[in-house]
């Protein structure tokens, strides 16, 4: 069996195992037997509540969000034929975060639990519309990247303005913590909220593999192979906006996953963008489930935010990978 053939089953198995182990981790450590009993326990059983209503939804959410980020990152790197591309580069993450921050700033969290994530989705949609207008006008990879950087910076500036104007330190810390990204205290309501958008986004990104592969040979050659370039770009932008917008809306801005995961997997499955989509989704899910478990295992000090942990794990790993490549190339 080739290395590529074991990657998908291997990652799936690792993801399931990480999820199960993660169910037992936390303030109350649980054995495998405890978890099994908790899953079928009565509704008011305290261990049952911990497992089913606190830990399970956050693990499921971490997997969904990580999967969305990994998949979008792989698709974007293929579309822009740029190894530095990631969901954050398109301005979609920052715009979704801005939407959520505005809702938080206006006290939306107290009005309805749907308001903050809803506003995040609206932010992502606005960024997507701006990008889709550019795609409609025939914008190429460079224009899309530049537009994404501009959108990102505008959204970050407005987010900073909201923080600047926040009425008191508590409001400010709420905004900052939210921005750092977390799946803490999320319930199945959050899972249900993001699931339709996330699935629609994943579905849109799914069928793009062949077109993304052809783009490896440049835009002209891809078009000569029958790839409808405008439609492919629109599909990736839309898919990313749905998947990442929904992720940011419920879990905040979690960086590095979309950038790092495709890089980690390329040596294992090869460089063809179509081959990277599924493994990147699984790898992203695994990374966030593990990062969330790490967060819960550290029992000293306040709980770390997920975005902080992914960056702390991701950045040195990424740097060592790049150094290893540079040594190889030299």
């Amino acid at each position: 069996m080739t290395r590529a053939a074991v990657v998908v089953p291997g990652l799936t198995l690792a993801l399931v195992l990480a999820g199960l182990v993660s169910l037992g981790l936390g303030y109350t450590a649980l054995s495998a037997g405890d978890i099994a009993r908790a899953l079928i326990a009565a509704p008011d059983d305290p261990t049952g509540i911990i497992v089913r209503e606190i830990r399970l939804p956050r693990i499921v959410l971490a997997a969904l969000v990580g999967g969305a980020l990994g998949l979008s990152g792989a698709a974007l790197q293929g579309l822009l034929h740029n190894p530095l591309a990631e969901p954050g580069l398109t301005g979609i993450s920052a715009s979704a975060a801005l939407g959520a921050v505005i809702a938080l700033y206006c006290g939306g969290a107290a009005v309805s639990p749907w308001l903050v994530p809803g506003a995040g989705l609206v932010g992502a949609a606005l960024a997507a519309v701006a990008l889709l207008v550019l795609v409609g006008r025939g914008a190429g990879p460079l224009t899309l990247i530049l537009a994404g950087v501009a959108l990102s910076n505008a959204a970050i500036a407005l987010t900073s303005l909201a923080m600047n104007l926040s009425p008191n330190p508590f409001a400010l810390s709420e905004l900052v913590l939210w921005l750092l990204g977390s799946v803490r205290d999320r319930g199945f309501d959050d899972v249900l909220l993001c699931l339709p958008f996330l699935s629609a986004g994943a579905l849109a990104l799914w069928g793009t593999g062949g077109g993304l592969d052809a783009l490896a040979l440049g835009d002209e050659t891809a078009r000569s192979l029958g790839v409808a370039l405008g439609r492919l770009r629109a599909r990736v932008v839309l898919g990313t906006a749905l998947a990442v917008g929904a992720s940011v809306a419920v879990a905040g801005a979690i960086g590095f996953v979309g950038l790092v995961i495709p890089h980690l997997l390329r040596p294992l499955v090869g460089a063809r963008p179509s081959r990277l989509l599924l493994p990147s989704a699984l790898g992203g899910a695994l990374l966030l489930v593990v990062a969330d478990a790490v967060v819960r295992m550290i029992s000293v000090g306040p709980e770390l935010q997920l975005g902080v942990v992914t960056a702390l794990i991701g950045a040195p790993f990424f740097l060592s990978l790049i150094l290893a490549r540079a040594r190889e190339a030299a």
């Binding site: 440049g218 002209e220 063809r272």
Partner: peptide, 9 residues
Amino acid sequence: AQERAVHWP
């Protein structure tokens, strides 16, 4: 095409 670049290894 005249372009000979291949963007991925």
